[in-house]
Amino acid sequence: MAVGAVIHTFAVQLADVDRGVYEELTLRVARHPSETDAFMVTRVLAYCLEFEDGIAFSEGISATDEPAVLARDLTGRLTAWIEVGAPDAARLHYGSKLADRTTVYTHRDPAKVAAAWAGKPIHRPESIVLHSFDPGFIEAAAGVVERRNTMTLSVTEHQVYLELNGTTSTSGIHDHSLV
């Protein structure tokens, strides 16, 4: 954990009807001083929306050779490389070579994020999916984040229903292809 990091706890009730995932999670998330609340919320949502056995947060900003969230199988092999924000093309290229599946969740304008990758070498770009949310959704959630958080996250038909600390919001999950 980075010096000066603030620990946030999320008690999550996850009901992802689309994938048949129903879990109660307790997440301890270290927010680096240079990390925004919007980035942290996107990181927590990415973890929940990609939840599977072997999923974990990386060391965060200090881990230059790992994504924000990753998943490994029982042998330790990297199965999912899950980036958050606006990673550069080189990171996507590297992650796509290491993992079976590469995904990006962004709290930024997806057109601008994807435009930064245009024309750059990325391994298997056709298999990488960029996920975004409705405008204002992440910012609204980031505005109610506290050190201790209760969160109910439901997903059905690519629609996210989020209750965070008593505040409810809804967003679509929009998938963007790199090719």
Rank of each mutant, 00 (worst) to 15 (best):
V155Y: 09
R147V: 15
K97P: 00
D65P: 02
L178M: 15
A141T: 03
T36N: 02
F51C: 02
A5H: 04
V129I: 10
D73M: 06
A90H: 13
A116H: 06
F57S: 00
V6D: 03
T103L: 08
F51G: 00
E83S: 07
E139R: 05
D175Q: 12
G54I: 06
I82M: 12
V160K: 01
A80E: 12
V160Q: 04
H123N: 08
E24S: 09
E83L: 12
R147G: 10
I128W: 03
T36E: 09
H176R: 13
A5R: 03
L153D: 02
L74M: 14
R108N: 03
L74Q: 11
D134Q: 05
A140S: 08
G85K: 07
V44K: 00
E35C: 04
T103S: 05
A71Y: 12
D18T: 10
Y94L: 10
H32N: 07
A140N: 02
E139D: 10
N149F: 14
A142R: 03
G4S: 07
V155L: 15
T170C: 07
R148A: 14
R108C: 03
T64N: 07
V6R: 04
S62K: 13
H123P: 00
P67Q: 13
G143N: 05
C48F: 07
R101V: 12
R28W: 09
S171T: 13
D100Y: 09
S96P: 01
I138W: 06
V129R: 02
D65E: 12
A142T: 04
D88P: 07
V3I: 15
T168R: 13
T150F: 11
A140P: 00
R19K: 15
G119N: 08
W81A: 02
F137R: 01
M1T: 11
R43L: 03
I122V: 15
A89F: 15
L25T: 08
D134M: 06
F57G: 00
T102D: 09
V21W: 06
D100I: 06
S132T: 05
I55A: 02
T64V: 15
S34R: 06
V29P: 01
V17I: 15
T26D: 08
V145T: 13
V144E: 07
E59Q: 09
T150P: 00
T75V: 11
H93L: 04
G85L: 14
T170A: 05
G4N: 10
E50S: 10
I61Y: 05
Y94N: 04
P87L: 13
L98D: 04
E59R: 13
V3F: 14
T103D: 01
A2W: 11
P33E: 04
T150W: 09
V3N: 05
T168D: 07
A114S: 13
A90D: 10
A5C: 08
T102L: 10
T167W: 09
P135W: 09
I55T: 03
D18E: 12
A114N: 03
I82W: 09
K120C: 05
E23G: 09
V129W: 06
I122S: 03
